[in-house]
């Protein structure tokens, strides 16, 4: 039994998810940091929901949403000619929802630590809001960007419940590492289970250490 298709699929899923999520989370996190809108708590709660919901709940609703009989799933089917459930695209969509808080929250924290007066200074020096965001807020929040990317990636690599609900267990298509481990244990193939589990453990540890080392090295800036 080769484990490589599962590893490859997992990495592909994590990369695609991370890339899309960072692009989505960046404006969302900036909006959450700066807005005075009354709907902000609502948006914040929705963004954080995947953090507290059991993956099965999330997966269940996503499955319903993606099913060819639901409006979204039907629309997808008519546009692409393919169903979302039990497909790689479906996994990506599910991962985007599942990992959203891990991309938004580090960015939001980083943006919140960009001092408002520093942004004001940029404005008085002739920078448009967009210009000030790109040249001041973004560089000052770069560590948050890194943390968000790493955590999103790692979290997507480790997801299990949502994938099982939405993608099932199709080798090479939806069978990611965590499901491969589950399958291996079910079939009493402990050698494979050990190999993959240890791999994930070491990987997760290294990723977290990387994040902490980076955040420590930058230090807390004293104004």
């Amino acid at each position: 039994m080769t484990v490589w298709p599962a590893i490859w699929l997992t990495l592909k899923l994590a990369f695609v998810t991370t890339a899309i999520l960072l692009a989505v989370a960046l404006p969302l996190a900036w909006w959450l940091t700066t807005t005075r809108s009354k709907v902000r708590p609502v948006v914040e709660a929705i963004t954080t929901l995947p953090l507290v919901l059991p993956p099965t709940v999330l997966g269940f609703y996503l499955l319903i949403l993606m099913s060819p009989t639901a409006p979204f799933g039907a629309l997808w089917l008519s546009v692409t000619g393919d169903t979302l459930t039990f497909s790689f695209t479906g996994l990506v969509i599910a991962s985007l929802v599942y990992s959203l808080p891990f991309a938004v929250q580090p960015l939001q924290t980083a943006f919140a630590s960009v001092p408002r007066p520093t942004m004001d200074a940029a404005r008085t020096l002739g920078a448009t809001p967009r210009d000030a965001f790109l040249t001041i807020a973004l560089p000052l929040a770069r560590r948050g960007f890194l943390t968000a990317g790493v955590l999103t990636f790692a979290h997507t690599v480790g997801e299990f419940g949502v994938v099982l609900m939405v993608g099932g267990n199709i080798p090479g298509r939806t069978r990611v590492i965590s499901i491969e481990i589950f399958t291996a244990v079910e079939t009493l193939d402990y050698a494979t289970a050990h190999l993959l589990s240890l791999g994930l453990l070491v990987f997760s540890f290294c990723v977290l250490m990387l994040v902490y080392v980076f955040n420590r090295r930058g230090g807390v800036r004293v104004a």
């Binding site: 008085t124 448009t128 809001p129």
Partner: peptide, 9 residues
Amino acid sequence: PAHERRIGF
């Protein structure tokens, strides 16, 4: 907007 007021703050 603030960036067009030419104020040295």
